[in-house]
């Protein structure tokens, strides 16, 4: 089937089989391998992308369902030279070790911070509840979100 979607601001036309998952379309057909695939049944959150602005599991949506819709992946955030404030904060606060879960976490947090610019720690932990990190626990991830909320230049939350 032919589908047309807006991916990271650019129109994309693609021929897909109905059973192709959105996550696999992004990675294999479009080369956007920043979206990571973990459990493939909606538990880990690594594949989270924005679907019409709202975070969803891209392993639980078919690519054909993106027809006519807007998708944003982690590639839409920043570049190595110009990191998005969230990415800068994860860097500053050491909010990742292996980084596998990070793209899904960033795409979950982007709309969260836009809607809730000054979240409490409880709200941050609740927002992160659908994203599993197996490296080290969540302390530095929470700190990174607090840092992003305050602006990455404010390093007091790191103490």
């Amino acid at each position: 089937m032919q589908i047309t979607a807006t991916i990271n601001g650019k129109p994309v036309i693609s021929e897909v089989e109905p059973r192709l998952l959105l996550s696999d379309w992004l990675r294999h057909d479009l080369g956007l391998a920043g979206t990571h695939v973990g459990c493939e049944h909606g538990v880990c959150g690594a594949c989270t992308v924005l679907f019409d602005g709202a975070p969803v599991r891209s392993c639980l949506v078919f690519a054909v369902q993106a027809d006519g819709h807007t998708i944003e992946t982690v590639e839409s955030l920043g570049t190595p030279d110009h990191l998005h404030p969230l990415q800068q904060s994860f860097w500053e606060a050491h909010g990742l070790q292996c980084g596998f879960c990070t793209p899904g976490i960033l795409m979950t947090l982007k709309p969260f911070l836009e809607q809730n610019p000054d979240p409490t720690e409880d709200e941050i932990r609740h927002a992160l509840s659908g994203n599993l990190c197996r490296c080290t626990g969540y302390q530095n991830i929470v700190k990174a979100v607090q840092l992003a909320a305050k602006g990455p230049s404010d390093t007091r939350v790191l103490d």
Binding site: G42, G45, T48, F51, A54, P55, V56, R57, L60, V61, T108, F112, A127, S129, G130
Partner: peptide, 9 residues
């Protein structure tokens, strides 16, 4: 019910 990402869908 599950997580925000699931509830969005």
């Amino acid at each position: 019910i599950a997580h925000p990402q699931i509830r969005n869908r």
